[in-house]
Design a protein around this nucleic acid. Structure first.
Lengths: 342, 342
DNA sequence: CTGCTAATTGCAATCGATTGTTTAATTTAT
DNA sequence: ATAAATTAAACAATCGATTGCAATTAGCAG
């Protein structure tokens, strides 16, 4: 069983005393093969349990009908939803997905990309790791004539197709919402600023303060608080300040927001009365914490579908010049209890 | 850019006035090529930005170094963790993953399997959908000489490699734990009994009752309560009974348990004092609900690694007969507040 | 019955890499 | 110095499907 020979078009041709080319044509439903023969070939193929060798077919045809996906972690809600979205759209078109995860490591990301290039995938979809600051490997993708689509965490400098969230605007709206609720000293938990998405979120925060005439307070902005643990520590520090914040915008993720909530609860600080909390990503759990956490939905599944469709559109486009198209999806603030100052 | 020609070994051979075979051997670090030439070839390959065409290579070599994975949903914690585990183990061995989701649909599952067979993957790893009762498509995998590994939701009748959880034992322990806590009328939310994992969980429940001398009460066992919504409905019914249960074991998932908790909260029934709750799967959120939910951890990431390693072992095994090996992982009850009757 | 078109089918090259077999060149042993 | 043994590179077939082109056959008008 370990190495059973598979049926090929030659087997079918031989059995029917035909030429393999006719078999191939019949299998591809070409009009230049007689209907009777075609039917016969199809029947024999079925009898012999034939399945096309996609490797051979793709080699000949010059493409792999495969899309490579590189994400930091596949078992993170946002990314697995994007993947699910991509999968749904590509599956219909007969495309396959090869999925890799970089584990937020630059080295691993480069390896993943190289493997995908070797596999001669038709397109690589990537959301870069936190560690990634250099883009030689992405340029390499382009140099190999492979379509590159960046999503969410993108390298701005590189002119490629991109699907992003409007992080600036959604952060603005989230903070604006908090201000309208009556919070006045809103702290910001920032992600690594080398990733543009985190820079944009900070900008949105700053703009919301500015437009509402609130001062920017350096002591209320914490860099690199992008995990639950780092956020918890940051929160403890913030809440021990002589003038502590009355709200915290965990711009990095809902996990950070959760860290904030846990520390606040442990310190007997009432949420949302004494402290407002807003997260980012609309993870499932934000709905069921007590209080439930205000957050920002990124339409991750839809984002995945958008990425896939962008690729298919680009395929149909016969222009030789590539226009670096960018699709921006506007996330939505989901106002919940954690910011109902009342 | 859309159809740039890639460098092949012929290009390298031509440039160096060598035969492609020497280039191939050099690239594969064969000892039968002179060190100086080898170095020259490697350098030229780098200069020309050469990358091996895996399609051609695999076609020639007769395998694809690819493993296909079919799961009901990739954006479900348990499955994405298993996939992450598989990915970690296979990546090291230079294998690729093609991931498909059946969306719990039999038809889609069959299509996925067929695609993977066409792709000539070396191995298919599958956890079947709820709808799947017939296994022709799985037999088809075997008939094509492709290694088949089932995990978690397996078709018992089919003799293949399997990695499962000991659902019976873990359910037994969970229910036993609840009984020891003082709960006496424990209801069971069941999953579709055609899936053996749900049957086993029910058996564990029954055995725990029996060994503790508790009666089996038909009105406390609800069939097909395997989503949050179905569980919520079931819970409303159970709690409106003349003799309502004092605990509910949501054997299907933590989402079901969450449904129970929400209904209980809405009905002002105190958890865990008046109602004990236990879920299944140890989803992240179970830790942060109030009260936190007792559940069962399935070691999903480890399960994925186990699946992958099982495949590699089987590869090394040169025996011609396949022994239908089954690896059973014992899940662990995570006792939390929702069952502390105190 | 000849000539011509259209419909089928056959032939052979191709995609890119691998590998068993030869041939040629070089080294070692006698 | 010559035969034998190494070493290195070339040759050619192969994996399975596809496809442009040639060849065959059938059908039909003149």
């Amino acid at each position: 069983m370990k190495s059973r020979k598979r049926t090929t078009i030659y087997d079918i041709a031989e059995k029917l005393n035909l030429n393999p080319s006719s078999v191939s044509r019949a299998l591809n439903n070409s009009s230049s093969v007689n209907d009777a023969t075609k039917k016969l070939i199809l029947k024999t193929a079925k009898d012999l349990n034939y399945t096309r060798n996609t490797l051979a077919s793709n080699l000949r045809k010059g493409h792999s009908k495969t899309i490579g996906v590189v994400v930091p972690r596949i078992n993170q809600n946002f990314f697995s939803n994007v993947i699910a979205g991509i999968e749904e759209a590509t599956y219909k078109q007969g495309y396959n997905l090869i999925i890799c995860q970089s584990n937020e490591l630059y080295e691993k990301e480069v390896q993943c990309v190289n493997t995908l290039i070797n596999q001669h995938v038709d397109c690589i979809v990537i959301s870069i790791s936190v560690e990634t600051t250099d883009h030689k490997h992405l340029q390499n993708i382009i140099d190999h004539g492979i379509q590159l689509i960046q999503f969410d965490r993108v390298a701005d400098e590189l002119e490629t197709l991109k699907v992003t969230n409007d992080n600036e605007q959604s952060s603005f709206e989230a903070v604006d919402h908090m201000i309208k609720q009556g919070y006045k000293r809103i702290a910001l938990l920032e992600g690594p600023q080398k990733l543009s998405i985190f820079k944009q979120r900070k900008n949105g925060y700053l703009r919301a303060l500015a437009e509402n005439g609130l001062p920017v307070l350096a002591e209320l902005m914490v860099e690199n608080a992008w995990t639950k643990e780092l956020s918890a520590t940051a929160t403890r520090n913030l809440l021990s300040l002589p003038h502590p914040p009355d709200a915290i915008f965990a711009s990095t993720s809902d996990f950070s927001a959760l860290g904030v909530l846990e520390v606040a609860t442990a310190m007997h600080i009432k949420v949302p009365a004494e402290l407002g909390i807003c997260g980012y990503s609309n993870e499932d759990f934000t709905e069921i914490t007590s209080p439930s956490i205000t957050t920002i939905d990124q339409f991750s599944f839809y984002m995945g579908k958008t990425v896939a469709n962008l690729y298919f559109q680009e395929m149909e486009n016969t222009d030789t010049v590539m226009v670096p198209k960018v699709i921006s999806i506007k996330p939505k603030v989901i106002a919940r209890s954690s910011t109902q100052k009342g």
